[in-house]
Write a protein that binds this DNA or RNA. Sequence first.
DNA 1: CAAATTTCAGTTCCACTGAGATGG
DNA 2: CCCATCTCAGTGAAACTGAAATTT
Lengths: 146, 146
Amino acid sequence: MTPADDRPARLAQMPTWLLNQASARAHRLLTDSLATAGSRGYHYRLLAALEEFGPSSQASLGRRTEIDRSDVVATIDDLVARGYATRSRDPDDLRRNVIVITGRGLSHYHRLDRLLVAVQDRLLSPLTPTERDAFVALLKRIVDAD
Amino acid sequence: MTPADDRPARLAQMPTWLLNQASARAHRLLTDSLATAGSRGYHYRLLAALEEFGPSSQASLGRRTEIDRSDVVATIDDLVARGYATRSRDPDDLRRNVIVITGRGLSHYHRLDRLLVAVQDRLLSPLTPTERDAFVALLKRIVDAD
DNA sequence: CAAATTTCAGTTCCACTGAGATGG
DNA sequence: CCCATCTCAGTGAAACTGAAATTT
């Protein structure tokens, strides 16, 4: 009756509830970890897309990272201000901005990536390596059904 | 390059990302389904706690359902306005309100519960029954580590 | 006095919408 | 004329914070 009451059993057993709890925990670990490097999830996602696909328009970055077009604008502003990326007009299509990751951006990306590897490890720490693989495989099947 | 660009492979493979995607899908299914009954997740959670634990104070409802005390107030307002619950002062502790589920509230709860059972089924539809059990068991282990 | 409960008002974060300007 | 892109301003939901009033 004080700090931690029981959850309703009906609730605590529903996959939707468990998924939400697990996702909230993952989000907390990720946010806290990236914060130690002065960054947020959006920064990592955009840097990952830039590293993997090379120079990109903001619209395609938004689609690839599932970040809203408005939020892409603000986050790229941020990355540019910190010297992690550059923004310039695309000469071939003047509607577009071309975003390019810089050398500093690349090394910042690698730093964030190392932090995230550690986050995955802490998140899955209750599972054995075999169980982790199984869990990820099942998750993928669910996500791909979308 | 048009509606659905590829996700960065580095991202698409991270458990934190997959969990977020799965949770977002679950949240969408749940929200849409409950909306067909004019309700939201908060309504279901509170009704489930009232059904399982009987008459309760708002504070304990908040702890049990992990809904913030402020949001409990507003949602109980809602349930009372629709005749699904009653609110009255607790004679034994005048600081407390006692919330009681009504007959109409109970049948509304059962209706929402049926909707949610169907949601779980759609969410897990890519998995076999055995895989579903395994998935839920792994999820529980991760959540319990919190 | 300290602690718990209810409530209101306000904040913060995230995701999104609308619309204007530019260009294909 | 229609569509894509970038940008800004603003909206709405969800989770939380602070403080006041009441009672234990």
